[in-house]
Amino acid sequence: MELIFLGTGAGVPSKNRNVTSIAISMLNERNAIWLFDCGEGTQHQILRSSIRLSKLEKIFITHLHGDHIFGLPGLLSSRSFQGGETELTVYGPTGIAAFIENSLELSGSHLTYPLQVIEVEPGEIFRDNQWQVVCDELDHGISSFGYRLVEADKPGTLDAARLKQEGVPAGPLYQELKQGKKVTLPDGRMIDGEAFIGPKQKGRIIAIFGDTRPQENERALAENADIVVHEATFEASKEEMAKEYMHSTTTDAAKLAQIAGAKHLILTHISSRYDKEASLQLCDEAREVFPNTDIAEDFASFTI
């Protein structure tokens, strides 16, 4: 599973950073791509990546500011021309349905696939046998959400070496034992698969935040996350400006990762005032509080 940053800038695009969009490639796990936010130009960024629109399964919108949604109508329309036939679900704050409906209707766009739009409230918004997604409101002046993705635990590994020592012949029996079943061997012995399966593998946790000032709701979303993706629009010395514009600083994001017990912090939504060299200084600021911090660049990818 891979986290791919398609846009990492704040407010307006710059030469080095497009506006916000983040993809999670789950091709090995569910043959799908999930997208978080869709700023203007996102489909152009996708053309420069390995992502295929036909694999897009879900889009999660954090809030309705233009730098997070202006690319959505074009992307939805283009998916029809790029082989998209399977259902696509868009999640977002109240108003996202009207934005999509009006944009498509006024532009005369016709989709060749089923589109479902779900306007979210705090709490669980999706669950299947692989993932649970919950969201909660942030503090950004308009309705803005953070999303927490929790992967289901995976079954433990079958101890094939120990089975061999017990004289269990390799073959179809191993598959049944891996499912925890009891099987009878040719020699009459009964073997319980549960006794040969290791502990469950803990599922991964990913927290992706929309624009926000620091607030209490964030901690639960980021709790014990393998990766936290958080905006860091401003440097630490501009704390008052960040509060005024309802954004976060580098150290705000780092403190959240620290108190939440996260493993890895990735900073994004970087103001265009910071060039590439200054962006590295932003990362250093955050690392003083939370050492395992990276700052995202457009097209950067991180294995989850």
Rank of each mutant, 00 (worst) to 15 (best):
L72Q: 02
I69W: 07
A262G: 09
L177N: 05
W131D: 01
L53K: 09
Q82N: 11
G193V: 02
R204D: 01
L163Y: 12
M26I: 06
G95I: 02
I22H: 05
I197Y: 12
L267Y: 00
A253F: 02
L177R: 05
T268A: 11
E240L: 12
R213N: 06
T184W: 00
G92F: 10
A98Q: 15
L185K: 09
L35D: 00
L280F: 15
E151M: 09
Y174K: 03
A242G: 06
K182E: 11
L64Q: 05
T249V: 00
Q201A: 06
L76T: 05
A222T: 07
Q130G: 04
N129S: 10
I208G: 02
F81Y: 15
T268Y: 10
K164E: 15
P186Y: 04
H264D: 01
Q82Y: 15
R79D: 08
A253W: 02
R189K: 13
K276N: 11
E137W: 07
E105Y: 14
S21H: 07
F196P: 04
I69P: 03
G123F: 08
F299H: 10
T293A: 09
L47T: 09
Q45N: 08
L115F: 10
I100D: 12
G83L: 03
K58T: 08
E105H: 15
A232L: 00
K58M: 12
G9C: 03
L27F: 08
H247C: 15
E277H: 09
G66M: 07
H230P: 01
E216M: 14
E2R: 14
A222M: 02
E29Q: 10
C38I: 11
P114M: 04
E216C: 11
D275A: 01
D139Q: 14
L163V: 12
G74Q: 07
S78R: 15
E277C: 00
L149S: 04
I206E: 05
D153L: 00
L265I: 03
A220S: 13
A222Q: 01
F5V: 08
Q82M: 10
S107V: 09
M190Y: 11
D294T: 10
G198E: 02
G188H: 06
G66T: 07
E105S: 14
F5K: 07
M190L: 10
T94D: 14
S237C: 06
T303L: 15
H63G: 12
G180Y: 05
F60D: 05
L56C: 05
K276P: 04
G9P: 08
D226Q: 10
K182G: 07
F36N: 00
A225P: 09
T303E: 15
F209T: 00
Q179G: 10
F126R: 04
K164H: 13
L256H: 01
N31P: 05
T86A: 14
G156F: 00
L138F: 08
I295H: 03
G7R: 03
H110W: 11
E288N: 13
L177K: 08
I266D: 06
K55W: 14
I259P: 06
L6W: 11
M246A: 13
I259C: 12
